[in-house]
Write a protein that binds this DNA or RNA. Structure first.
Length: 213
DNA sequence: ACCCAGGGTCATA
DNA sequence: TATGACCATGGG
């Protein structure tokens, strides 16, 4: 049983240390879908370059991406790595998005149905799906990434080897379904990870990771 | 020269 | 179910 208090304490420490993160960094809702795929196992700075290329080419739209040959799309997103794989994944996602009628139609689906539909898209796994659900559709879905596991494990709130769904269910059971909270929480965890905490008890990062009473 | 970064799929046992 | 290989760029 994960305690609500413990999670809230972690959240408060993160927020006090770093403040609001204003996620997802994107100029449009659709750009969040693109970024979610491109950032798979990839540093965000490289994703920004790929998205800038797409924007410059006038291709930041679902049908404009679908219409692009794999090779040309791969060339545009080259800086984000895995460009051949990601070109196909992006096209699958964009084809799905357009065929489903875009945000206007998809927004009417309940979260579980929408999540299942996303997971059927080739190349969209649980984390990418949840990024999209939380940040593009404002659904109260808690995103689990490797940073979340590491942090909660260091704080002894989890073992760390739980599967994705188990972890998500535990955290969502401990917290109220609060989109704004989940949004900020995940963003803060990523922000904290980028600070590369050194376990120095004097630094503000270690205050974040100090033992929970 | 190494290591890692806001994962996911596929083949194998 | 559970590992391992694979995908690939750019920054430290």
């Amino acid at each position: 049983m994960m305690s609500r208090r413990a999670l809230k304490t972690v959240y408060r420490r993160l927020y006090r240390a770093y403040g609001p993160q204003h996620w997802w960094p994107a100029a449009s809702r659709f750009e969040i879908l693109v970024g979610a795929v491109l950032t798979q196992n990839t540093a965000w700075v490289n994703v920004e370059k790929a998205i800038a290329n797409l924007r410059r080419a006038g291709r930041l739209e679902a049908k404009a991406i679908t219409a692009l040959p794999d090779k040309r799309l791969a060339a545009l997103i080259r800086p984000s790595g895995y460009f051949n794989v990601k070109a196909r994944r992006l096209k699958h996602l964009c084809r799905w998005f357009a065929e489903e009628g875009g945000f206007s139609t998809l927004s009417r689906r309940n979260t579980e149905v929408l999540r299942a539909s996303l997971l059927e898209v080739h190349g969209i796994g649980p984390e990418t799906a949840d990024d999209i659900l939380l940040y593009a559709f404002s659904r109260p879905v808690f995103v689990i990434d490797v940073y979340t596991r590491r942090l909660l494990r260091r704080l002894r709130l989890i073992n760390g080897d739980e599967d994705y769904e188990t972890l998500r269910a535990r955290i969502e059971a401990a917290l109220a379904p609060d989109t704004a909270l989940y949004n900020e929480f995940h963003a803060l965890i990523v922000r904290h990870a980028k600070e590369k905490c050194t376990q120095d008890p004097g630094c503000r990062h270690c205050k974040v990771e100090a033992p929970l009473k």
